[in-house]
Simulated assay, not measured.
Amino acid sequence: MLPAGFRLTRRDEFVAVLRRGWRSGRSRLVVHMHCPAADGAPRAGLVVSKAVGGSVVRHRVSRRLRHLIAPRLEGLPAGAMVVVRALPPAAEASSAELGVDLDAGLHGVLRKAGATRRG
């Protein structure tokens, strides 16, 4: 479980990340990241829609993603806001497969953010 201070909870935060942030897609999920401020703890939110499956499947995917994202938050820049959007193939994926996709997605958005700030 993500502690309360590390969660995105408001709709406007999700919208800001999805509209203004960087995006890196994988086969089972898409990672969005936005860094509006250089201070504060990194925070994360999940989007698992009905396209992924029924409520039992969605909650299983959400639990797996929460468990995977929690230890990875410390490697993110201060003030970063991350949204992980699960795609339908996430329903059949193992935790290890989701972890590989999450790591690749985070690496992709961090690379894009670094290139944007330097250039």
Rank of each mutant, 00 (worst) to 15 (best):
M1R: 01
L2V: 04
P3V: 06
G5K: 13
G5A: 15
F6Y: 07
R11D: 15
R11Y: 14
E13R: 05
F14H: 07
V15R: 14
L18N: 04
L18C: 08
W22H: 10
R23K: 15
S24Q: 12
R26M: 03
R26W: 00
L29K: 14
V30K: 10
H34C: 04
A38L: 15
G40W: 15
A41D: 13
P42V: 04
R43I: 08
G45A: 10
V48C: 10
V48M: 11
A51L: 12
V52S: 09
G53A: 11
R60E: 07
R63K: 14
R64C: 15
R64T: 12
L65G: 07
R66G: 02
H67S: 14
L68W: 09
L68K: 09
I69P: 00
I69F: 03
A70I: 00
A70V: 00
G75M: 12
L76E: 07
L76A: 09
P77Q: 10
P77E: 03
A78Y: 07
A80P: 02
V82Q: 02
V82H: 01
V82S: 01
R85D: 01
R85G: 01
R85M: 11
P88L: 14
A91R: 02
A91I: 09
E92M: 03
S94T: 15
S95Y: 09
A96S: 11
V100K: 04
V100W: 02
L102V: 07
D103E: 13
H107D: 11
R111E: 15
K112N: 01
G114I: 05
R118N: 01
R118P: 00
G119Y: 07
